[in-house]
């Protein structure tokens, strides 16, 4: 049983199930990556883990506690943090205000955390009083990740953090992700750039039609000829 573990998840958006029993988990200090074709239910699985979706069956366990029935806000207080795929910053608010909102549940002084975020993403420090909506795609993703880090989470969930950014920015972001993982945070990430993501993954999940097709270490999946042919483009 991992630190965060969703097991046997079934559920959808009110209509037919999208998830058909997939299981996803990640441990502290690890990077786990979820890949799979478009519409496989990767985002849906993330939402399910965070409580943004009503589960029909299955459970979500965090640190050996069943949190399947908790609303999202309470999962935030338990140390989970989520960067959704779309609309993941407050566009009309400044960078600094975005980070402040990230720390909304905290009662203590969050300034040190904000400084940590600024040292992780120096460009955000320079643009701290600019509205997030005016930033470039890559900078926005940094704001999004920074906002999620403000609660000092134990689990950070990222849904396609590199969507729409250049390869250089992508490498840069992956480096930061590894850096964050090294501080002992569990990272669960959905990625379109499957090959690069699996390179840095301790664990990989290949999701197809709401089910686990392959589950292994990142390296093992990269080495598997089946996986390469079907999901990594040869």
């Amino acid at each position: 049983m991992s630190f965060l573990q969703g097991g046997g998840l079934y559920g959808g958006y009110g209509g037919a199930d999208i998830l058909h029993g997939c299981s996803i988990g990640v441990d502290k200090g690890e990077v786990a990556v979820v890949v799979g074709p478009n519409g496989a239910g990767k985002s849906t699985a993330m939402r399910a883990l965070f409580g943004l979706l009503d589960l029909r069956e299955g459970s979500v366990v965090l640190d050996e506690k069943d949190i399947s029935r908790l609303p999202p806000q309470e999962r935030v207080t338990l140390g989970m943090s989520f960067v959704p795929q779309n609309a993941n910053v407050f566009t009309s608010m400044t960078v600094e205000e975005n980070l402040e909102m990230g720390a909304f549940v905290r009662q203590d002084d969050f300034r040190p955390t904000m400084d940590q975020v600024f040292s992780l993403f120096p460009v955000l420090g320079q643009k701290r009083s600019q509205p997030a909506g005016e930033l470039s795609g890559g900078q926005r993703q940094q704001v999004a990740v920074g906002r999620a880090l403000m609660t000092q989470p134990s689990v950070l969930m990222l849904d396609e953090p590199t969507a729409g950014v250049s390869p250089i920015v992508m490498d840069e972001l992956f480096d930061r992700v590894i850096e964050i993982a090294k501080t002992g945070i569990a990272i669960l990430m959905v990625e379109q750039n499957a090959r690069q993501a699996l390179e840095i993954a301790d664990r990989g999940f290949v999701l197809v039609q709401g089910q686990n097709r392959y589950t292994d270490t990142g390296q093992a999946l990269l080495a598997d000829p089946e996986v390469r042919r079907s999901f990594l483009g040869g």
């Binding site: 965070f50 943004l52 999202p72 806000q73 935030v76 207080t77 943090s81 989520f82 959704p84 609309a87 993941n88 910053v89 407050f90 566009t91 009309s92 608010m93 205000e97 402040e100 909102m101 990230g102 909304f104 549940v105 906002r147 609660t151």
Partner: peptide
Amino acid sequence: TRTGKSMRAYSDNEDLALLSGIN
């Protein structure tokens, strides 16, 4: 104010406000 900003955040992006723990 913190509360005022949380209102702006909610108005800007309801889902993200929820993810940030805003009630």
